[in-house]
Design a protein around this nucleic acid. Structure first.
Lengths: 196, 196
DNA sequence: CCTACCGATCGGTAGG
DNA sequence: CCTACCGATCGGTAGG
């Protein structure tokens, strides 16, 4: 009997998180109210607190979901024995498809992280810094092996990651170009920008 | 006599706008309070309203300041008779130095525009769309003249503009690399990504 | 999961 | 430019 109750609770909780991501994306974290979220979910505001601790917990979950996915992928890529340029391309494709698939979450995690509270704020920032460093290390390795031209690796990382987040505008513009085409164009521009 | 009073008022107003840009950047528009802004400026909250109409007017001014600078530059570039690639490079350099010089304003305009009220919201969005179209037209022209490789122009615009906004992280990281170096690296990566 | 409600904070105004 | 203050809204809790 406990099983059914747990299952229901989990499912409701996940609906709340997903709706929160969409709402936070549309209004921003601060401007989004718990009453509005409750409306969307279809309950009274007070009832939300049976499923989640508070508003900030929602932001925590969204941000760390995204961060964990990134950390898992970079670890996977590091163990593979591809060339540096191939590794960067794979990471780039992962970011592009991830942006399309988990759009609301990624958008919120990118733009609303400053409303995280300690210790989550410091934790996420450290994770992001570490992530960028690991990508930069791949690029630096590629430069040493002369697969990639001599550039500042951390600048290249910044460009790549932020360029991908630009898909947001594409997403909003109702996609005159399809996802696969978009991906090929982005990879073409960014990867050839690194080649010698 | 009216001259001195006007001059003082204008100056105070400009201080308020500049401090608002910094505060909105740090906290986000919604989370920033007028009481906090007043504290920073050194007056009581009520006194701010002798210089500005309301909180949203501050956001309007910041966003359209940035947009107007962009529109002026694209108009200038269009009249020059350089190659498409040279035009794109000039625009890129303008965006990079502008991001460094007017960091708070550009950051707020990029991330907080959604809190604009109508008709300003629709107005700014239209201006931004028009701006991107004019850049895309330069790229398409370059493709036709075979200076630029065959890519989707609007994707290239998205990448460029968002890549530049990545400077925010560089800015935050206390600049291990200096501004000029950063600019050369970005131009190198992005412009060679467009070349045939 | 709801009703009822609290304390805090907000943007902004009146009036001097 | 300040004191005093208002109405609205917020996140969250008590209690059932």
């Amino acid at each position: 009997m406990g099983r059914i109750k747990t299952s229901d609770t989990t499912s409701r909780r996940e609906i709340i998180i997903q709706k929160a991501a969409t709402l936070f994306k549309e209004k921003g974290f601060k401007a989004a109210s718990m009453r509005e979220l409750a409306d969307i979910v279809g309950v009274e505001a007070a009832s939300l607190y049976n499923h989640i601790k508070n508003k900030n917990e929602l932001l925590n979950i969204i941000c760390f979901d995204v961060a964990n996915r990134y950390m898992q992928m970079i670890a996977e890529i590091e163990t593979e024995k591809n060339s540096s340029l191939e590794k960067i391309e794979k990471l780039l494709r992962f970011h592009i498809t991830g942006m399309v698939k988990h759009f609301d979450e990624v958008y919120v995690s990118d733009r609303e992280w400053k409303h995280l509270e300690e210790p989550y704020l410091a934790n996420l920032q450290a994770q992001r810094r570490a992530y960028r460093k690991r990508i930069a290390a791949i690029i630096d390795d590629g430069i040493k092996k002369k697969e990639i031209k001599k550039i500042d690796a951390s600048t290249a990382v910044l460009i790549m990651l932020h360029a991908v987040s630009g898909i947001e505008s594409w997403h909003r513009s109702k996609a005159k170009i399809n996802g696969k085409e978009l991906e090929e164009n982005m990879v073409s521009i960014l990867v050839s920008g690194l080649k010698k």
